[in-house]
Computed example of a mutant assay.
Amino acid sequence: MDTRPRVGPAVDYPRMRAGLLTLRERLADVRETAESDDGLITVTVGARNELLGLELDPRVFRTPDSAALAADILGTTRRAAEQVRGRLHELTRSLLADQEGGRR
């Protein structure tokens, strides 16, 4: 007899665990790349917000404004991180939809 408390519909814990393990596996493949508005900076960010790649076109060094360069790199990195968050949201929604479908 299952003695776990029930607050709402029954939760299929083994199915939820399997879904979470699948999500964790998929996270390893999540990476997004963003490019600066001028196309001179390319940044790739992973699911754990780690910087996986930074490419600078040599033309960025024609202007010796390091503060502007840093701001452009940061802005491009944030754009890539936003794309990663969107992808994670999609994966999580997919997992939850699968869980909901299994309860019916």
Score class of each variant (00 low, 15 high):
A18M: 04
E55H: 13
T42R: 14
T44A: 13
P9Y: 06
A71W: 02
N49V: 07
L52F: 06
D29M: 08
G102A: 09
R6F: 10
G8L: 12
T63L: 10
L91A: 01
D98I: 00
T22E: 04
D65E: 12
E82W: 03
R59T: 09
L96P: 01
D12W: 08
S94R: 08
L95K: 08
R17V: 02
G46A: 14
L52N: 06
L96N: 11
R31H: 12
A97T: 12
T44G: 04
E35I: 04
I41P: 02
A68T: 04
A67P: 00
I73L: 13
R85V: 15
L54K: 08
R24G: 02
Q99Y: 07
R59I: 03
G46W: 03
S36Q: 14
R48M: 11
R78F: 06
I73D: 07
M1T: 07
D57M: 14
V84Y: 06
V60P: 04
D72Y: 00
T92H: 09
V30P: 02
P64D: 14
D65R: 04
G75F: 01
E100T: 02
R78V: 12
A80C: 13
E55I: 08
G39A: 11
G19P: 00
E50D: 15
E32V: 10
D29F: 03
L88S: 01
G53N: 13
E50Y: 06
V45C: 07
T3A: 06
D57E: 11
R26P: 00
N49R: 15
L40G: 05
E100N: 03
L56C: 07
T77F: 05
R103W: 04
R31Y: 00
M16P: 01
R59A: 15
G102V: 05
R24M: 03
G19D: 02
L51I: 10
E25C: 07
R62E: 15
L56A: 12
G53A: 12
M16E: 04
L69M: 09
A47Y: 01
V45Y: 01
L21F: 01
I41R: 00
R15N: 03
E35P: 01
S36C: 10
T33A: 04
V60F: 01
V43F: 04
D29Q: 06
T63K: 04
D37H: 12
G19K: 02
G19H: 01
R93L: 14
R93Q: 14
A34K: 07
T3I: 11
D2Q: 09
L74E: 01
V60M: 07
N49G: 08
T22L: 06
E32H: 12
D2V: 12
I41F: 03
R104L: 11
G39P: 10
E100P: 01
L74H: 03
G39N: 15
S94N: 10
L23Y: 09
P64H: 07
G39Q: 15
A80F: 11
S36G: 15
I41T: 06
L51P: 06
N49A: 15
A97M: 10
P64V: 09
A47F: 01
G19I: 00
T22M: 00
L91K: 10
R26W: 02
